[in-house]
């Protein structure tokens, strides 16, 4: 453990610190002012997917587990939150909590099953389990079948802030997303994050060091599921809709694309990828071009030409010019 953290604490971070601080402040200013220039609900959608892709990145990028079933947590939580808010009449906070709780339990169960297999089989197991959730969503009466759960009430934050206004919705979702990203950042930089990296790089060796590999994988998977659920719950409230589209395997694939395209295993990458993909879909949706075909093409190009993703490539180039030996996390 101590060895791992010693190599991972890159000396380059300190020399960047003023630049980083400046970039951070600039980014915060842009994010806070964004709804002045851009339609807030569109930004909310981007935020939800930033959170979703970053959550997937915990398992895909940092633990090296390809989950092909994350739509189950996103869409499942969306259904639970929508039902809780609309039918049970729970306030916003409790409805979101219900969705996140559901996703967490589901993540624990699916994770415990899926980590019994490795690599490709892991991907297939998660895909199959998520498909089971999809079929349940088709059949169970409360999900509303093809229509989904519509006109979910917005509610208020703590009974004060009216979430019907899209600008206030934006800032609330922004707060949740920032919280989620902070949790991920904190987890990845902790000893836990270094253990995940060790498991990703060499599972046998991590095991031989006495680490309980299964337990760490399961914690990572559950955390990832919980945050995916948070993204789904927020999406359900903000767009007043939970539908079958949220639980399809297309959704699982799309969020993988976001993470891959932005840069797996980096903190900023999934945010870049999510922004890119959501914007692309937004502009394509009116063009009449076949979106699925274009998404597939982007997938293929990404896998063939730049596997490190947009942000991953940029970071690798920057690091390479400064210090050729240091390409670690």
């Amino acid at each position: 453990m101590t060895l791992l953290s010693a190599t991972a604490a890159a000396p380059t971070t300190r020399s960047f610190s003023t630049v980083r601080l400046f970039l951070l402040v600039a980014a915060a200013a842009v994010v806070l002012a964004a709804p002045l220039a851009i339609y807030p609900l569109f930004l909310v959608k981007i935020l939800c997917f930033i959170l979703f892709a970053s959550a997937l990145n915990i398992v895909l990028g940092f633990a090296g587990l390809l989950s092909f079933g994350h739509a189950a947590f996103f869409g499942g939580a969306a259904y639970i939150t929508a039902h809780a808010a609309k039918v049970w009449g729970l306030p916003f906070e409790l409805a979101v909590l219900a969705g996140v709780g559901f996703a967490t339990v589901l993540g624990l169960v699916f994770g415990a099953l899926a980590i019994r297999r490795h690599g490709i089989y892991f991907a297939m197991v998660t895909l199959a389990l998520a498909q089971m959730v999809y079929f349940l969503a088709v059949q169970l009466p409360f999900t509303g079948g093809e229509d989904g759960i519509q006109s979910v009430p917005h509610g208020t934050l703590l009974g004060i802030v009216d979430l019907g206004k899209s600008t206030s919705m934006y800032y609330v979702v922004l707060g949740f997303t920032a919280f989620g990203l902070f949790v991920i950042w904190r987890a990845i930089r902790s000893p836990f994050g270094h253990i995940l990296a060790a498991i990703r790089e060499n599972e046998q060796r991590a095991r031989s060091l006495g680490l309980n590999v299964e337990r760490y994988k399961l914690i990572a998977f559950t955390l990832s599921a919980a945050l995916s659920g948070l993204a789904g719950s927020l999406k359900a409230i903000a767009f007043q809709l939970a539908s079958l589209a949220d639980v399809t395997w297309h959704m699982s694939g799309e969020v993988i694309l976001m993470t891959l395209l932005g840069g797996m295993g980096t903190l900023i990458g999934p945010a870049v990828g999510a922004t890119f993909v959501v914007s692309m879909e937004h502009y394509l949706s009116t063009s009449g071009l076949p979106i699925t075909f274009i998404i597939g093409t982007v997938f293929v190009i990404c896998v063939m030409l730049f596997r490190r993703g947009i942000y991953g490539e940029i970071r690798a180039r920057l690091l390479a010019t400064r210090q050729p030996s240091d390409l670690g996390d």
Partner: peptide, 12 residues
């Protein structure tokens, strides 16, 4: 992931 992309392309 590549074959997934191919599947999406063909289906789309």
């Amino acid at each position: 992931l590549l074959t997934f992309g191919v599947a999406l392309m063909l289906e789309g």
